[in-house]
């Protein structure tokens, strides 16, 4: 009796197995492709956002410090009247770094130090340096220069830099590039 039942048992035919397998072969790669596309898109946004945050932060800090605090511009430190630039005597300076003096006589400046933007400030008690961009962002073409406008007007300082992230792999989703530039006038002049 039991033996007879066993003979009735049917497996899948070859055709059924082939159909099922080919369906899986279509669906599974499609799903993985979508999943990885989603991961790549998220990575790209993450990198872009990080680059933008760094650039925005650096530009805002530099811009507001120069705008609010700088009284005069110098091309050497310690800042004296002899090395003051962007006045009627020395009308422009593209010499980097420029040193800005605030109303207390403390100087500050911004330079590019190995792919990062560094903010330096110093007084008689010593100097201190703060990085304005993180280690993932690569700064290039950092430039601060000033222009003498007129006797009645404060010097105009232009700031520009490019910010790139290449990522460890250099894949398209790890790469982002933004450029920044602005001009400010010294309001405490």
């Amino acid at each position: 009796m039991g033996i007879a039942r066993k003979n009735n048992k049917k497996g899948f035919t070859l055709l059924e197995v082939v159909v099922v397998l080919s369906l899986f072969a279509i669906i599974v790669p499609a799903m993985f492709t979508m999943y990885f596309a989603s991961l790549r898109a998220q990575k790209k946004v993450f990198v872009l956002r990080d680059t933008k945050r760094n650039g925005d932060n650096a530009l805002t800090v530099i811009e507001s410090l120069i705008k609010q605090n700088a009284v005069s511009v110098h091309n050497a430190t310690p800042p004296t009247t002899a090395n003051q630039v962007c006045t009627s005597l020395v009308t422009s300076s593209s010499a980097v770094p420029l040193y800005f003096k605030d109303k207390d006589g403390t100087w500050f400046s911004f330079t590019q130090v190995s792919n990062k933007i560094a903010s330096h400030s110093g007084s008689l008690s010593g100097t201190s340096t703060v990085q304005l961009t993180n280690s993932k962002s690569i700064v290039s073409g950092f430039d601060v220069r000033c222009i003498y406008v007129s006797e009645l007007s404060p010097p105009l300082v232009s700031i520009s830099f490019d910010l790139n992230q290449n990522g460890p792999t250099g894949r398209p989703e790890d790469v982002s590039s933004l450029s920044y530039q602005t001009k400010v006038k010294l309001r405490s002049y």
Partner: peptide, 30 residues
């Protein structure tokens, strides 16, 4: 997944568009 990709794409475009808007604002201010 498709929704997520669309959203992410939108966020990316918006980030870039915001940068372009700010770039122009900074240049105009200059």
């Amino acid at each position: 997944t498709i929704q997520s990709i669309k959203r992410t794409k939108f966020t990316e475009q918006k980030l870039i568009a915001t940068r372009y808007a700010e770039e122009l604002e900074e240049w105009l201010r200059g």
